[in-house]
């Protein structure tokens, strides 16, 4: 098994785990972390699959991942700001009507 495939499979595992977490978790911060897990998994698949057995890494894939990371950070930060304001105004850590844990 080449290292590239190992990264890609690990990334796929993270993607699926994150997605399951996204579907199950209701606490906003945990959902956001699940989203970041999905994102990291996707990025790993992207660099892992572009890595050829002959060794040299693919700069295009690395650049794409870097762009993806910046976009993910922007989205994460925006979500945090929204969540924080939601918490300040309502005192709740989730969106639905259930009581907080």
């Amino acid at each position: 098994m080449s290292p590239g495939l190992l990264y890609a499979l690990a990334g796929m595992l993270l993607f699926v785990m994150g997605l399951a977490g996204f579907a199950l978790l209701r606490h906003l911060l945990r959902r956001l972390m699940a989203f970041n897990l999905v994102g990291s998994g996707t990025f790993l698949v992207l660099v892992g699959l572009a890595q050829r057995p002959d060794g040299e890494p693919d700069p295009v894939a690395q650049a794409l991942v870097l762009t993806g990371i910046v976009v993910a950070i922007a989205a994460t930060a925006l979500a945090l700001v929204l969540m924080r304001r939601w918490f300040d105004l309502t005192g709740r850590t989730r969106l639905d009507g259930e009581a907080d844990e």
Binding site: P59, V60, Q62, A63, L64, L66, T67, V70, V71, I73, A74, A75, A77, L78
Partner: peptide, 24 residues
């Protein structure tokens, strides 16, 4: 090469990406 891709070959992606950051 990564910087070359980011700021020259695929600079349009980076321009929009910075736009996303500014929007956030």
């Amino acid at each position: 090469p990564v910087t070359a891709v980011l700021l020259n070959f695929r600079a349009y992606d980076t321009l929009l990406e910075i736009g996303v950051l500014v929007v956030a």
